[in-house]
Design a protein around this nucleic acid. Structure first.
Lengths: 239, 239
DNA sequence: GATACCATTTTGGGATACCAGGGCGGTACC
DNA sequence: GGTACCGCCCTGGTATCCCAAAATGGTATC
């Protein structure tokens, strides 16, 4: 395996960054799962990953354990399975998000230093008609993550980040819909405006509505596309 | 290693339960950390764990990765360190708990089926003067976990469970204080009563106050005991 | 006595060998 | 043809082995 040509996959050696094999495998595998290159419900074998990324089973195993705690993969008896897209989960996730994100935005609204808000607003504005969908997808998630970061609370931040990770695959559907995207962005800006004014209640109310609306849009388009997704071999678990 | 006498530590073969080495190591190591048998801040080496539990490094490493995501251990450069008791973390944890537990208790109060409440109440009542402190400690955490389970929301449940795990070691201090314990139990019962009445707002208010009070009691006694803990070799990070 | 330097040991990261259990396919028997 | 059985193959679980980097400790130099 030392001279395995596949090992060329190894880190592109970014200056100053020494990436371990485990981090490599974890990152690449996560990207493949979140980018739907590996379909929800698909079976994974350690040997396949091993040869795919040119790493031995030791880092592969470590990466799998990490991804399991992120909820991106699960155990199917003895083997590994990419987590299916779960409609019921989306509902529960929205409830959880509302709890942690509202708490975070309230803290953010209470801050004296509002400079972080402008950074986030600029991030939103960096997306325009020419921006590829993948970028909208990423920024849409980062909005919530960065907002949570403003709270200064590591646990709220981690909760939001985990939730967004789990939501990530389903959100590709929302991103496809021009109208839904516009609505989401408007709501994002409205939340930011309330935070800027220091109006915690208003920010909480708006964010809460945004999360519920986002869930509804998602559930609807997922329900509509269920057949299409299944046709592509994606496991979609009903609510 | 096949004939390592330490391997006798292996699973006691409970009927019907086949415990893998990884699960064994993870469980035992977690118990040692949470039970303060391994002090906060202490260094861990994979080789020590390996010989201590009679398992090879593969399951040991898997267990360490798990415990890392639970926040019980962390990396110290290249090595592993038992997470110190962190006063600042307790504050942030209380904020997080308030967010998720209040959300959970509101859902629980909205349930038609209130039978779960009685089970939790019975659990609380199972503790009396003769009950060992370790049991009070466990039940005190399980109260919050089971309450969250009533919500039926997996994410809220996981959030509460994770938070209680992180809090667990510090809570040994609260359990030592008879008065604090009495107050906590009274507050627990009050929350349950509100849930039983279906009064979500009241339950939320009471639980919120309980979490804040618990944090204050904890921070105070931890601050007082800091010297003693440090004398026992426990790393305690100031707020 | 302090400090810089070097050899040795120790540690985590990675690779590989081996094993037991389960799945799958073929075959023989009914 | 159908079904039960048997054995091969693949999988994850585990135990080692090797390696490079980092810690350690001793020593020589100033």
């Amino acid at each position: 395996m030392n001279i395995n040509p596949a090992a060329v996959n190894a880190a592109p050696k970014k200056s100053g960054t020494t990436m371990s094999q485990m981090q490599n495998v974890e990152r690449q595998l996560r990207e493949m799962i979140l980018g739907l290159e590996i379909g929800p419900g698909e079976r994974l074998t350690e040997r396949w990953i091993e040869s795919r990324f040119g790493a031995s089973r030791t880092p592969v195993r470590a990466a799998l354990l990490r991804l399991e705690t992120e909820g991106l993969i699960g155990r199917d008896g003895r083997g590994w399975t990419v987590a299916p897209i779960n409609l019921a989960e989306l509902g529960q996730l929205a409830v959880y998000r509302e709890a942690v994100e509202v708490a975070a935005v309230r803290l953010a609204a209470a801050l004296e230093d509002r400079s972080g808000v402008e950074v986030i607003a600029a991030m939103l504005d960096s997306c325009d008609a020419d921006t590829p969908r993948g970028e909208w997808h990423r920024v849409g998630m980062d909005f919530h993550i960065e907002l949570a970061r403003l709270s200064g609370n590591e646990f709220l931040l981690r909760g939001v980040r985990d939730a967004m990770t789990r939501l990530s695959r389903a959100r590709w559907l929302e991103v496809r819909d021009e109208k839904a995207l516009g609505r989401a962005w408007a709501e994002h800006h409205a939340v930011l405006a309330a935070v800027r004014e220091g109006d915690a209640d208003k920010a909480a109310r708006l964010l809460s509505a945004h999360i519920a609306g986002s869930r509804d849009r998602l559930v609807t388009s997922l329900h509509d596309d269920r057949r299409g997704l299944r046709a592509r071999g994606f496991a979609v678990v009903a609510a």
